[in-house]
Design a protein around this nucleic acid. Sequence first.
DNA 1: ACCTGAACACCGTTCAAGT
DNA 2: ACCTGAACACCGTTCAAGT
Lengths: 222, 222
Amino acid sequence: MAKSRRSPQRRKEALSRESIIGASIELLDSTGEAGLTFSALSEHLATGAGAIYWHIANRNDLLVAACDAIIARTMGEHVVRATPRETIRELATRMFDAMDAHPWVGAVLVRVAGQLPMVRIFERIGQQVRALGVPGDKQWVAVSAILNYILGVGGQNAANAQFASVQGLDRAKFLDEVSTAWSQLAPDQYPFARSVAGHMRTHDDRVDFIAGIDLILNGIRS
Amino acid sequence: MAKSRRSPQRRKEALSRESIIGASIELLDSTGEAGLTFSALSEHLATGAGAIYWHIANRNDLLVAACDAIIARTMGEHVVRATPRETIRELATRMFDAMDAHPWVGAVLVRVAGQLPMVRIFERIGQQVRALGVPGDKQWVAVSAILNYILGVGGQNAANAQFASVQGLDRAKFLDEVSTAWSQLAPDQYPFARSVAGHMRTHDDRVDFIAGIDLILNGIRS
DNA sequence: ACCTGAACACCGTTCAAGT
DNA sequence: ACCTGAACACCGTTCAAGT
């Protein structure tokens, strides 16, 4: 009110690490990992390309920060489950859903070994593995098995999503194509791949993912 | 002999897809994934950059082909083991060793869902899971669990190797640094990560990897 | 302290021209 | 048919100059 003049739509608020990360996530969700360029990002933020470097170190830093923002959200919310086993299932399912909603997360996650986003997941699952009563010297292997399985699935999902989007196919169409390709492999060399080609066409990724978690949990128990 | 003149050292034989893939693998092993550029590769092959495109479609095609060459070698050799379980352990161990010797393979592998290199591994493990007596409708989940675990570990190893090489550290020094970082996390937020920080410093990746495979195999049996 | 935007070095890919 | 190498479009990052 005191201000005599305001631009009709304030074009931007002060740039900040948070606003940059937020814009990056939007960009990553809509255009994939390759879509996160400094020119697209600076346009999105109505600023110069170089300005971004005042707040972040480099592109990789930005990618990890964006990934960590998703993971912090995903792992942050409280879990209300009766048993450690159910809690682990819940956490794993959340991870699946997060990587499904943001396919680039899976791809980034597999390259940030030992860094913050991974530690968050590791910690959360680790506490439950401990609560499960797994002896101390077996906890590392148990948690690693669950975590690496999640990362593997995440990477694959990211690859599927990227491959499908490059070809302009939706997910179902894409899986259908892969399934067809597998069913046409040489019968003497690829009998197993052929035999499960049909399953790939009809299966529910999410259900199979959780079945895999259950399988590993059974292995942990024994 | 009929030839009047030969260049003292024939600078190159005819370019071929195979020779390009071979040179790519050398380059990838020595300089990592970022080191595979068309300028480095064409220099290595004593040819022009554009010539390579006569034999391969693009950089990604080349990366997948290089990866597949390693996987074909790794999965190709015959396994002489008494039981399906031992055979799976052997195949998984080979994968670990291959990804350890060629860290870029893990990174490439997680992005080629459904394509040839992955199908090779899938098939090989699938046949053994079938031999294990797993019922038909559970085979997909069982194989996926093993495969995704391997991919997860491979991705992590690739990330570790790349991170370590960027910082000019050897693997042991690098793990030592991560271990120290984990042990300094906030005790109330990261009790589990802190508790296993010591294990990370001393553990044998390969041994723990196989322990994870055994854990999954136990889950499959139950 | 924070931002601008031109400049730099480098990259994958294309393509007219050669053999 | 296969190769050359200059040209193109694009990228992450830097930095002198502004406010």
